[in-house]
Structure formats: C-alpha cells, structure tokens
C-alpha cells in the first residue's frame, strides 16, 4: 500500500514544483515591453503633418514655374516640418525601451558589402529603436524633398513629382509612422480590456 502511494506523491511534488516555477515566472514578469508605448501626441502630430505636406505639395504644383513656387519663397515649410519631426524623434527616444532596431542592424551589415557608390545612396542607417529609425528616416526624407525643391530652381515642383513624394517617399514614411502608432493604440486598448 505504501508502494502505491509513492507515484501519487511524486506527481503531487512535480505539480507543486511546476506551479512554483510558473508562479515565479508570472511574478517576475508582470508584463514584457519590447517596444515604446503608444503616444497620442505623436499620432496627432503625424496626422496633421500629413495633411500639411499634402496641401503644400498641391499648392506648389499649382504655382510651379512661377516665383511663388520656388524653393526661395517656400523654404519655411521645410524648417517647420523638420522641427516638428525633431520633437517626435525626441519623444520616441525618451520613451524607447530598446536602443537598437534588429532590421537596421541587419541592413547595416548588408550595405557594408555593397559598392561604395551604392552605399552612398543608402547613407548611414539611423540609430535607435525601430520607431526612432522610422522618424529619423522621415526627417531625412523631408531633407531630400527640400534638396529636390531647391535643385529644381525656377521649375519648382512639377505635377509628375506628386505621387513620387506623397505615395512613395515622404508619404510612405508618414503612413508607416502613423500605422505604428495605430497598432500600438489598438494593442494598448486590448491590453486594457483584458
């Protein structure tokens, strides 16, 4: 009879140890944070910036080839846009829970093996967590848009550049940054509902 009790005792002991392990695991890790939290201010700032950029491009196209459409007459837009993204970068860095982005580390190794002229187009990949990388790329894209406008001289921004800037380029980065905030917003709401 004593021999029949032993397996049951062993099972109870094993169960106790598993339970203790799970309790320690759950107690040690209340929640895990791999990304920075949702930031309402950044989401609103990005949405407003998207509208302002779209309106600016349409206005520039309407007056291209005229003095009112030149870079010299409109450079304030770029200073303002880049300053607004700088604030978002600062907030992103402040809330960051990591200081690296796995994909840019990978891309960095990849670009190191490219010829120098190709590497020149890619440039130095931005540091920081992935959200900060996106925002830093956005700031850089506004710099490219400014360089484009300046290089165009009297031609200004032609109609053919609209989709290049707003569907690709700056527009793509704005949508990416907004999509990140939207995903974080949904995740935060779901976590709150649990």
């Amino acid at each position: 009879m004593h021999a029949r009790r032993e397996p049951a005792l062993r099972r109870r002991m094993a169960g106790f140890f598993i339970l203790s392990f799970l309790a320690m695991l759950a107690a040690a890790c209340t929640t895990v944070s791999l990304v920075s939290p949702y930031d309402e201010q950044t989401e609103q700032g990005l949405s407003t910036l998207y509208v302002d950029t779209s309106n600016f491009v349409d206005r520039m196209i309407a007056v291209h080839g005229q003095p009112a459409g030149t870079f010299a007459q409109n450079q304030q837009f770029y200073s303002d846009a880049m300053a607004r993204v700088d604030v978002m970068i600062a907030r992103s860095q402040g809330f960051a829970v990591r200081d690296t982005c796995p994909s840019t580390q990978f891309l960095s190794r990849l670009t190191d093996s490219l010829p120098a002229d190709v590497r020149g187009h890619v440039g130095t990949l931005p540091p920081g967590d992935c959200q900060t990388v996106v925002l830093t790329a956005l700031r850089g894209a506004y710099g490219d848009m400014r360089d484009f406008h300046r290089a165009q001289g009297d031609r200004g921004i032609p109609e053919s550049a609209r989709e290049i800037i707003l569907t690709g380029g700056v527009g793509s980065l704005l949508r990416t940054a907004i999509a990140i905030q939207a995903a974080k917003h949904v995740a935060a709401q779901q976590a709150g509902a649990r």
Partner: peptide, 21 residues
C-alpha cells in the same frame, strides 16, 4: 537624385516599421 534618395529612405523606414509592428 534627391527624389531617389527619398525612396531609399522610405524603403528603410517601411522595413524598420514592419519590425516595430
């Protein structure tokens, strides 16, 4: 060239954004 550089930055941003998500 500036327009092309802008598209390269956008590609990097989309990949980093996908990683964040």
């Amino acid at each position: 060239k500036a327009l092309f550089d802008m598209q390269v930055k956008a590609s990097i941003g989309v990949i980093a954004g996908m990683t964040e998500m």
